[in-house]
Design a protein around this nucleic acid. Structure first.
Length: 426
RNA sequence: GGAGGAGUGCCAGAGUGGUUGAAUGGAGCGGUCUUGAAAACCGCCGUACUCGUAAGGGUACCGGGGGUUCGAAUCCCUCCUCCUCCGCCA
């Protein structure tokens, strides 16, 4: 969530940022409510603190009087304290209520977009940061979409997934399964080469963790829950991995912290289904390699570019046509300050598929998580958090299969040969 | 799942109702000494919110939440976690 201090000191910037996300002037009034609520919170706290301070002093006096055996005087003080306690109790309730109001308001406000983020409401307003300037693969007229190819070559099976679980849970098999494993291994190796430490986090997380990265309360409906145990299935490795550093104060020299993780991701995608989401385009469970960085605020945008380059290199090695979008304010995720999306060209479907999203969250997540570092002067500051998919498998597989289909079978890009052990799927 | 024990600052570890935000030791930082280093000695060394231009105050926090009390790290309830033993098990 946004820092109160920033809202207070830099209100106009925040309001303008929300406007960039497509908020109406009316909607941005919430910022005023936040400031008013915070004023109430502060005055209530002051009142309460003063009262508690008085209580404390009197209590000490009672202790001394008791020690001296002056029970009468002590009793007199006790009655005075009783009144203060009554008052304090009321103020405490009041304070808790104001605090909750304030938190609810703060949780309802998304991150403020970076100044370089274009204004806009829908994907149409996104800017193309890097277009594909080479020819697209030309496919034979009888080219098949990946869900047909999957049947033809027995690579994965949606019907079987329905039997076992439900729609959107594919079963990969044979070379399809091997291809999954090859991609996972390839992406992890590339990340490790780029200096990321591999971690294998839990796939189920608790409430605090889900709140830390902003899944709660904003995106609750997106997650599968285990209500009995009050746990959530992770929608992305970002959630457990970033939270590894929750409530930490890092030495400045340990920045940047670079971590990578392969995990399956679980997404309910409630209400998101339609004709355009066939096959692997959208599924409830998919595999993804995530890269996460915790960085010094001065360097985070440099680091964002670095991560973008890393993802670009992966797609080049996979020989996939891709483009990079700079998301507009309205299309960005709730917690993000700046996001680049990667899309690969799916030749048989004749459309772009999103395969990666690389974002800088600045202090939005670290503020919730209390993820901080001690700077050169010994002062404690919130760190910046960043993450990106490098990469999400399902759609990469879709594009890979479609773009590389030939009459002789599906050609596997060279970079993967050592991982798959085969060069073509026949 | 059953029985017992324990959770205190960066770490180790005192503290069982009164001036304790917390002894002591270690680590770390600064200094004295030294050609340099080590040793020795001296000093500093929690976080959040809040009042204040500042100096400097106030409040909260000893696993989480709640309670008893004028007063709780210390007593009670509850949850979580860890350890030991038993059971079960990939």
């Amino acid at each position: 969530m946004l820092q109160l201090k920033v809202i207070r000191d830099d209100k106009n910037r925040i309001v303008n940022g929300l406007r960039k996300r497509g908020w109406s002037v009316q909607q941005t009034k919430v910022i005023n409510s936040i400031l008013e609520t915070d004023d109430r919170r502060r005055s209530t706290q002051k009142e309460l603190d003063d009262l508690l301070a008085e209580n404390k002093i009197l209590s000490k006096q009672i202790g001394q009087l008791m020690g001296q055996g002056k029970t009468g005087e002590a009793e007199a003080l006790k009655t005075r304290v009783a009144g203060i306690k009554e008052q304090a109790k009321q103020l405490e309730d009041q304070f808790a209520e104001v605090k909750k109001q304030l938190d609810d308001l703060l949780y309802s406000v998304p991150n403020c977009p970076h100044k370089s983020v274009p204004k806009g409401k829908t994907p149409d307003d996104n800017k193309i940061a890097k277009a594909w300037d080479k020819p697209f693969p030309s496919l034979p007229p009888d080219a098949l979409p990946h869900w047909e190819l999957a049947k033809k070559y027995n690579l994965f099976d949606f019907e079987l997934g329905v039997k076992l679980t439900g729609a959107g849970f594919p079963v990969y098999r044979g070379k399809g399964a091997k291809l999954q494993r090859a991609l996972i291994q390839f992406f992890l190796d590339e990340a490790i080469k780029a200096g990321f430490e591999e971690v294998i986090p839990p796939l189920l997380v608790n409430e605090d963790t889900a709140r830390g990265t902003g899944q709660l309360p904003d995106k609750e409906a997106q997650m599968y829950t285990c209500e009995r145990d009050n746990l959530y299935l992770i929608p992305t490795a970002e959630v457990p991995v970033t939270n590894i550093l929750r409530d930490e104060i890092l030495p400045e020299k340990s920045l940047p912290v670079k971590m990578t993780a392969y995990t399956p991701c679980f997404r309910r995608e409630a209400g998101a289904w339609g004709a355009h989401v066939r096959g692997l385009n959208r599924v409830h469970q998919f595999d993804k390699i995530e890269i996460v960085q915790v960085e010094h605020p001065d360097r985070s945008y440099q680091t964002l570019q670095q991560m973008v380059r890393h993802v670009g290199k992966l797609l080049q090695k996979l020989e996939l046509p891709y483009r990079i979008l700079l998301l507009c304010g309205g299309d960005m995720g709730f917690a993000s300050a700046k996001t680049f999306d990667f899309e690969v060209w799916s030749a048989a479907q004749q459309r772009w598929l999103e395969v990666s999203s690389v974002s800088n969250f600045e202090t939005f997540q670290s503020n919730r998580m209390q993820l901080r570092f001690r700077d050169a002067e010994g002062k404690i500051q919130l760190a910046h958090t960043l993450n990106g998919s490098a990469l999400a498998l399902a759609r990469v597989v879709a594009a890979l299969l479609e773009n590389n289909q030939t009459p002789e079978g599906i050609r596997i890009p060279k970079a993967l040969h050592r991982y798959t052990g085969f060069k073509v799927i026949v």
